[in-house]
Amino acid sequence: MAELKDDIRRIHEEIERESLFVQALTAEIGKVIVGQKYLVERLLVGLLANGHILIEGVPGLAKTYAVKSLAGAISARFQRIQFTPDLLPADIIGTQIYNQRTGEFTARKGPVFANFVLADEINRAPPKVQSALLEAMQERQVTIGEQTFRLDEPFLVLATQNPIEQEGTYPLPEAQADRFLLKLKVGYPTKEEEKQIVERMTKGAEPKTEPVVDIPTILRARELCTKIYVDEKLKDYILNLVFATRFPKEHNLADLAPLVRYGASPRASIYLLSSARALAFLKRRGFVIPEDIKELAYDVLRHRIILTYEAEAEELTTDDIIRRVLEGVEVP
């Protein structure tokens, strides 16, 4: 083996230099969160790929805590909004307040004006409120009265939802769930991890993260992520995966055809590429490999595939479909 081409080598060197903060950040979060490496890594993918994240898991898995710790480790503004059935759009985006002294209305910005917004239990608020947040997520701007305000960069919404206790909830419509870059499924910690958690949390003062990274570093890393090299064959591989969810028969996956009602949207292709670049950055590489794509395929595609009644009757999940797609599409 001789050498990398100049452009890749340059990106590689830049990544080596710029990705040093990842270790510091992970170590800082590790002071607070035990285990949950997958969750923390995916949060960083979202941060670098400039995409929002939906986290699903039963209560008590440190979903909220992980997000809070990430925000704490970056010197950025953090806001937590507890979604409840009586929440109003103005409670999120802000409202106009009448100033008696000047006789004018002034805009009062809501909690969405932050770098990290934790929308806790997003499925507990009615669709009107969900739409207000999701619109801000998409447009990255908020209009209060006649004034439009740009949201600060980075702007990352981390929404959590609970897969149990579905009574009185408003599940996110497919079109709105599609706006999230990743949907993460958080599982239970291992026995050893839980032992550490118990010891750490019963010592007294709750551990907290200190800022170790600033926003300009994050923005530079984001910029660098867009330069990471992706071979044409890998782009084709991404498209093959996404198209296989839409037209399984054409990809020798005829058995999936009666199980999938709607395949993943073009947003899936875009997000799979951008998140694979972010993962390559985290692994300090200047290029993407198929492993990055396969690793992220579940998180990017699981909320973008709509199953048929037959699939639901068979108790199949979108993860089962993605597994079959990954097994059936040739890796270049």
Partner: peptide, 10 residues
């Protein structure tokens, strides 16, 4: 490396 990272082998 050759396929995905434009490596040029000797």
């Amino acid at each position: 490396l050759v396929k995905y990272a434009k490596y040029l082998p000797a």
